[in-house]
């Protein structure tokens, strides 16, 4: 077993276990902290894929900005009745878990357990995988081929900002 595989398996185990803990904790603060752990291990997995820029952005934007916003809202709402929200396992839960399990089996069946089929050749990174993940390369692509979607993103963020302010205002005009 190569060292790369060991690193991947450890990070994958952390990601899966923290994801499962995230959806089973009763306290939303614990859930948010496990989700941050999941995002950090995902950033490590991006590094094993030679995607340095995406790994850094994952930590800065997701684990940093978005999760701080979520934690801020959890603290702001001060959910004292969270024990009442504790979910008991009902028939509906078992049905949804069964449904999800069937979907997982289908997905894995499509991907294939042994990497045969259409994924057969993909056991190695592409020779240029190191340089396409750098800030330099992503930046030059972003401001040449993807400049129009990039500018549209700024309009989207402006619209989201205005929408958030209007929604969270005390009284609608």
């Amino acid at each position: 077993m190569s060292s790369e595989l060991i690193v991947f398996l450890v990070l994958a185990a952390v990601a899966v276990i923290s994801g499962i803990l995230m959806i089973t904790r009763a306290n939303p603060v614990n859930s948010a902290l496990f989700l941050i752990l999941n995002f950090l291990s995902l950033a490590g997995i991006y590094l094993t894929l030679h995607a340095q820029f995406v790994a850094i952005i994952q930590i800065l934007v997701y684990a940093g900005a978005i999760m701080v916003l979520v934690l801020f809202v959890i603290m702001l709402l001060n959910l004292e009745d969270e024990e009442r929200l504790r979910d008991t396992l009902t028939k509906r839960h078992y049905a949804s878990m069964l449904l999800a399990l069937v979907t997982l089996v289908l997905l894995v069946q499509v991907i294939g357990w042994d990497g045969a089929g259409s994924l057969a050749g993909m056991t190695e990174f592409a020779p240029n995988s190191v340089e396409i993940g750098t800030v330099e390369h992503i930046g030059s692509e972003l401001f040449t081929r993807y400049v129009f979607p990039f500018e549209l993103t700024s309009i989207l963020l402006l619209a989201a900002m205005i929408g958030a302010v209007v929604l969270a205002k005390k009284r609608f005009p």
């Binding site: 899966v16 995230m22 997995i45 997982l104 991907i111």
Partner: peptide, 19 residues
Amino acid sequence: MIPIHYYLILSAVMFITGV
């Protein structure tokens, strides 16, 4: 090297966890 389907199966498991 790690074959690509390891990553895809991890992604599927995480997606189903979210579902």
